[in-house]
Amino acid sequence: MNKSVMIVGVGGQGTLLASRILGSALLSSGFNVKLSEVHGMSQRGGSVVTYVKYGENIASPVIEKGEADIILAFEQLEAARWLEYMKPDGKVVVNTQQIDPMSVVIGDSVYPEGVIDSVRAAGADVLEIDALPLAQQAGSAKAVNVVLIGAMAKFTDIPKEVWLEAVKECVPAKFMELNLNAFELGYSYGG
Protein backbone atom coordinates (compact mmCIF):
# COMPACT_ATOMS: atom_id res chain seq x y z
CA MET A 1 0.00 0.00 0.00
CA ASN A 2 1.23 3.46 -0.81
CA LYS A 3 2.01 5.86 2.02
CA SER A 4 2.85 9.51 2.14
CA VAL A 5 4.52 12.03 4.40
CA MET A 6 4.39 15.79 4.11
CA ILE A 7 7.22 17.81 5.58
CA VAL A 8 6.18 21.44 6.08
CA GLY A 9 7.94 24.41 7.57
CA VAL A 10 9.50 27.79 6.94
CA GLY A 11 12.22 28.36 4.34
CA GLY A 12 15.62 28.03 6.01
CA GLN A 13 14.54 25.47 8.65
CA GLY A 14 16.23 22.55 6.91
CA THR A 15 13.19 20.69 5.61
CA LEU A 16 15.08 19.62 2.47
CA LEU A 17 17.70 17.67 4.44
CA ALA A 18 14.91 16.00 6.41
CA SER A 19 13.20 14.89 3.21
CA ARG A 20 16.49 13.60 1.82
CA ILE A 21 17.06 11.44 4.91
CA LEU A 22 13.52 10.12 4.65
CA GLY A 23 13.94 9.41 0.92
CA SER A 24 17.20 7.56 1.53
CA ALA A 25 15.68 5.41 4.32
CA LEU A 26 12.72 4.52 2.12
CA LEU A 27 14.86 3.67 -0.87
CA SER A 28 17.11 1.32 1.08
CA SER A 29 13.96 -0.33 2.47
CA GLY A 30 13.15 -1.33 -1.09
CA PHE A 31 10.22 1.00 -1.66
CA ASN A 32 9.47 2.85 -4.82
CA VAL A 33 9.87 6.49 -3.74
CA LYS A 34 8.90 9.88 -5.12
CA LEU A 35 9.72 13.19 -3.49
CA SER A 36 8.65 16.61 -4.58
CA GLU A 37 10.00 19.90 -3.35
CA VAL A 38 9.76 23.50 -4.44
CA HIS A 39 12.98 25.49 -4.74
CA GLY A 40 13.66 29.11 -5.54
CA MET A 41 11.42 31.89 -4.29
CA SER A 42 9.98 29.93 -1.38
CA GLN A 43 13.39 29.39 0.20
CA ARG A 44 13.29 32.95 1.50
CA GLY A 45 11.41 32.56 4.76
CA GLY A 46 8.21 31.52 3.02
CA SER A 47 6.02 28.52 3.74
CA VAL A 48 7.72 25.43 2.29
CA VAL A 49 6.47 21.93 1.71
CA THR A 50 8.05 18.66 0.62
CA TYR A 51 6.01 15.65 -0.40
CA VAL A 52 7.36 12.15 0.17
CA LYS A 53 5.45 9.17 -1.20
CA TYR A 54 6.41 5.51 -1.07
CA GLY A 55 5.02 2.08 -1.79
CA GLU A 56 5.05 -0.35 -4.67
CA ASN A 57 4.11 1.93 -7.47
CA ILE A 58 3.89 5.70 -7.10
CA ALA A 59 2.47 7.77 -9.94
CA SER A 60 2.05 11.37 -8.82
CA PRO A 61 4.89 12.92 -6.79
CA VAL A 62 2.59 15.42 -5.05
CA ILE A 63 0.20 15.00 -2.13
CA GLU A 64 -3.27 16.47 -2.33
CA LYS A 65 -5.97 17.22 0.24
CA GLY A 66 -6.91 14.23 2.39
CA GLU A 67 -3.95 12.09 1.27
CA ALA A 68 -1.01 12.31 3.72
CA ASP A 69 -0.52 9.62 6.36
CA ILE A 70 1.85 11.83 8.34
CA ILE A 71 2.42 15.57 8.48
CA LEU A 72 5.78 16.53 9.96
CA ALA A 73 5.52 20.24 10.76
CA PHE A 74 8.63 22.22 11.66
CA GLU A 75 6.47 25.08 12.89
CA GLN A 76 3.00 25.24 14.51
CA LEU A 77 1.23 27.50 12.05
CA GLU A 78 2.42 25.38 9.14
CA ALA A 79 0.81 22.30 10.74
CA ALA A 80 -2.52 24.12 10.74
CA ARG A 81 -2.00 25.49 7.22
CA TRP A 82 -1.45 22.05 5.69
CA LEU A 83 -3.73 19.95 7.92
CA GLU A 84 -6.30 19.55 5.14
CA TYR A 85 -3.72 17.57 3.19
CA MET A 86 -3.76 14.82 5.80
CA LYS A 87 -6.02 11.78 5.89
CA PRO A 88 -8.57 12.31 8.68
CA ASP A 89 -6.94 9.46 10.65
CA GLY A 90 -3.37 10.58 9.95
CA LYS A 91 -0.65 11.60 12.40
CA VAL A 92 0.72 15.09 12.99
CA VAL A 93 4.21 15.48 14.44
CA VAL A 94 4.67 19.16 15.20
CA ASN A 95 7.59 21.20 16.48
CA THR A 96 6.27 23.73 19.00
CA GLN A 97 8.44 26.52 17.59
CA GLN A 98 6.56 29.64 16.47
CA ILE A 99 7.90 31.81 13.66
CA ASP A 100 5.96 34.99 12.96
CA PRO A 101 5.10 35.60 9.30
CA MET A 102 5.96 39.13 8.13
CA SER A 103 2.30 40.17 8.25
CA VAL A 104 2.36 39.38 11.98
CA VAL A 105 5.71 41.11 12.49
CA ILE A 106 4.39 44.36 11.02
CA GLY A 107 1.04 44.09 12.81
CA ASP A 108 -1.20 43.41 9.79
CA SER A 109 -2.34 40.09 11.23
CA VAL A 110 -1.99 38.13 14.45
CA TYR A 111 -0.34 34.81 15.19
CA PRO A 112 -3.37 32.82 16.38
CA GLU A 113 -3.55 31.46 19.93
CA GLY A 114 -3.77 27.74 20.60
CA VAL A 115 -2.78 26.53 17.15
CA ILE A 116 -1.92 23.00 18.21
CA ASP A 117 -5.14 22.76 20.23
CA SER A 118 -7.19 23.61 17.17
CA VAL A 119 -5.29 21.02 15.13
CA ARG A 120 -6.23 18.49 17.80
CA ALA A 121 -9.81 19.75 17.95
CA ALA A 122 -10.10 19.07 14.23
CA GLY A 123 -9.62 15.41 15.09
CA ALA A 124 -5.92 14.99 14.36
CA ASP A 125 -3.70 12.63 16.33
CA VAL A 126 -0.88 14.98 17.39
CA LEU A 127 2.59 14.51 18.83
CA GLU A 128 4.04 17.87 19.84
CA ILE A 129 7.73 18.21 20.46
CA ASP A 130 9.95 21.13 21.39
CA ALA A 131 12.86 20.12 19.17
CA LEU A 132 15.18 23.08 19.81
CA PRO A 133 16.38 22.11 23.32
CA LEU A 134 16.86 18.52 22.14
CA ALA A 135 18.92 19.75 19.18
CA GLN A 136 21.00 21.91 21.52
CA GLN A 137 21.46 18.91 23.79
CA ALA A 138 22.72 16.97 20.76
CA GLY A 139 25.23 19.74 20.08
CA SER A 140 23.70 22.28 17.72
CA ALA A 141 20.48 24.25 17.30
CA LYS A 142 20.80 23.48 13.61
CA ALA A 143 20.04 19.79 14.21
CA VAL A 144 16.34 20.55 14.86
CA ASN A 145 15.50 18.95 11.50
CA VAL A 146 17.16 15.65 12.42
CA VAL A 147 15.48 15.61 15.86
CA LEU A 148 12.15 16.00 14.09
CA ILE A 149 12.89 13.24 11.59
CA GLY A 150 13.70 11.05 14.59
CA ALA A 151 10.38 11.88 16.25
CA MET A 152 8.52 11.09 13.04
CA ALA A 153 10.48 7.92 12.27
CA LYS A 154 8.78 5.70 14.81
CA PHE A 155 5.42 6.24 13.10
CA THR A 156 6.72 4.60 9.93
CA ASP A 157 7.28 0.90 9.33
CA ILE A 158 11.02 1.33 8.74
CA PRO A 159 13.47 -0.24 11.24
CA LYS A 160 15.61 2.12 13.29
CA GLU A 161 18.92 0.79 11.90
CA VAL A 162 17.81 1.78 8.40
CA TRP A 163 17.07 5.29 9.61
CA LEU A 164 20.48 5.61 11.25
CA GLU A 165 22.17 4.51 8.03
CA ALA A 166 20.15 7.11 6.12
CA VAL A 167 21.25 9.86 8.53
CA LYS A 168 24.88 8.80 8.04
CA GLU A 169 24.46 8.90 4.29
CA CYS A 170 22.90 12.37 4.17
CA VAL A 171 24.91 14.48 6.64
CA PRO A 172 28.56 15.60 6.35
CA ALA A 173 30.98 13.24 8.11
CA LYS A 174 32.15 15.84 10.64
CA PHE A 175 28.59 16.36 11.94
CA MET A 176 27.65 12.68 11.92
CA GLU A 177 27.86 12.00 15.67
CA LEU A 178 25.90 15.13 16.45
CA ASN A 179 23.16 14.22 14.00
CA LEU A 180 22.95 10.60 15.14
CA ASN A 181 22.48 11.90 18.70
CA ALA A 182 19.84 14.33 17.47
CA PHE A 183 18.02 11.48 15.73
CA GLU A 184 18.11 9.34 18.89
CA LEU A 185 16.73 12.15 21.04
CA GLY A 186 13.87 12.63 18.62
CA TYR A 187 13.25 8.91 18.25
CA SER A 188 13.02 8.28 21.98
CA TYR A 189 10.89 11.36 22.62
CA GLY A 190 7.42 10.73 24.04
CA GLY A 191 8.01 7.02 24.60
Binding site: V10, G46, K87, P88, A121
Partner: peptide, 18 residues
Protein backbone atom coordinates in the same frame (compact mmCIF):
# COMPACT_ATOMS: atom_id res chain seq x y z
CA UNK B 1 -11.31 12.82 -0.52
CA UNK B 2 -12.48 13.68 3.01
CA UNK B 3 -10.18 15.97 4.96
CA UNK B 4 -10.07 17.81 8.28
CA UNK B 5 -9.41 21.49 8.83
CA UNK B 6 -8.11 23.41 11.84
CA UNK B 7 -10.54 26.12 12.93
CA UNK B 8 -7.97 28.90 13.02
CA UNK B 9 -7.10 31.88 10.83
CA UNK B 10 -3.72 31.07 9.34
CA UNK B 11 -1.91 34.19 8.12
CA UNK B 12 -0.16 33.82 4.76
CA UNK B 13 3.60 33.32 4.81
CA UNK B 14 5.09 34.69 1.60
CA UNK B 15 8.88 34.76 1.15
CA UNK B 16 10.73 37.74 2.63
CA UNK B 17 14.18 39.32 2.36
CA UNK B 18 16.45 37.28 4.65
Amino acid sequence: KPCIKADVDVPARPPVLC
